[in-house]
């Protein structure tokens, strides 16, 4: 029955969508919207005629779910709000119900059962839409997290053979990976024998963060370079001792300047003030 009314439903749905004030013409053109809607309705109606209303896990539903998922993910990336994305499915439900009412007319009992079916189906499809929409959003967040992690770990060559890496922000295990990998790679690339890890920008050091630091220092040592940790604030020194973390095998300095001084000493370099010649 719905097969025949496909065209009608589509028109009605489009009308609903266009009437919605939440329509984002800046993000999607009417033609694209129509193409999306048509694609979905095509596969939806094919499925409805098969009579399987209930088991969305079955294979025949997978094309519908795929299309819907695709739309939801693209919308998440394009920056649609959840309401706008939801409206896409909800307005279809309205269109379907309206058509149903016109078709069945006075038979309230039949209308009710059919409506319930449609209702339940569309609700489930909405849930799927939202799930995928959120997943799409999460992907965006994950990508940004990766980018931030990469940006926020610059390895600086402060002297020939000395690298410095200022860490700003919380040091979790994912971040440690990035820090460690870029530091070790840079050590290989530049042939530096001393690396200074400055943690003055790290808000707190707990035993986990300390473990990450120790790991980085040990890995640097295995490669044949020395790693100094600098920028240790008094509060951090206090927590480290209170937590019983053993940093005795690591060279630690309170400031980057003193770490650099230590590095110079190890490399047998000296920084001298030039005394201006009199006359």
């Amino acid at each position: 029955m719905l097969q025949k009314k496909k065209k009608n439903i589509l028109e009605l749905w489009m009308k609903n969508q266009l009437a919605d004030e939440g329509l984002r013409e800046d993000l999607i053109s009417n033609d694209d919207l129509r193409a999306q809607s048509e694609e979905l309705i095509d596969s939806l109606v094919t499925n409805l005629s098969s009579g399987n209303f209930t088991d969305l896990n079955s294979d025949e539903w997978s094309p519908v779910i795929e299309i819907l998922g695709g739309i939801a993910i693209t919308r998440a990336r394009q920056g649609f709000s959840p309401r706008e994305t939801g409206a896409f499915v909800f307005s279809l439900k309205e269109a379907l119900l309206e058509t149903l009412q016109k078709e069945i007319g006075d038979d309230t009992k039949a209308l009710f059962t059919e409506s319930m079916k449609i209702n339940r189906l569309m609700d489930n499809l909405s849930v799927i839409t939202f799930e995928t929409f959120i997943k799409g959003r999460e992907e965006v967040i994950l990508r940004q997290t990766d980018e931030i992690a990469e940006i926020s770990t610059p390895v600086i060559r402060v002297w020939d053979g000395i690298l410095a890496l200022p860490i700003i922000g919380t040091l979790d295990s994912a971040r440690t990976q990035v820090v460690m990998e870029s530091l070790l790679q840079e050590i290989v690339d530049t042939g530096s024998s001393i690396a200074i890890l400055d943690i003055s920008g790290v808000p707190a050091v707990d035993s986990l963060v300390a473990q990450h630091l120790i790991k980085t220092v040990s890995a640097t040592r295995l490669m044949g370079a020395e790693c100094i940790i600098s920028g240790i604030r008094p509060e951090i020194a206090q927590t480290v001792v209170h937590l019983g973390i053993d940093l005795s095998n690591i060279v630690t300095k309170s400031t980057l300047a003193s770490a650099l001084q230590h590095a110079f000493k190890v490399m047998r370099l000296e920084v001298k003030k030039i005394t201006p010649r009199t006359n």
Partner: peptide, 15 residues
């Protein structure tokens, strides 16, 4: 003296 250990190898050994 062990020389030239790759970064990935160093990280793995520590872990």
């Amino acid at each position: 003296v062990v020389v030239g250990m790759q970064p990935a190898v160093a990280i793995t050994l520590i872990e």
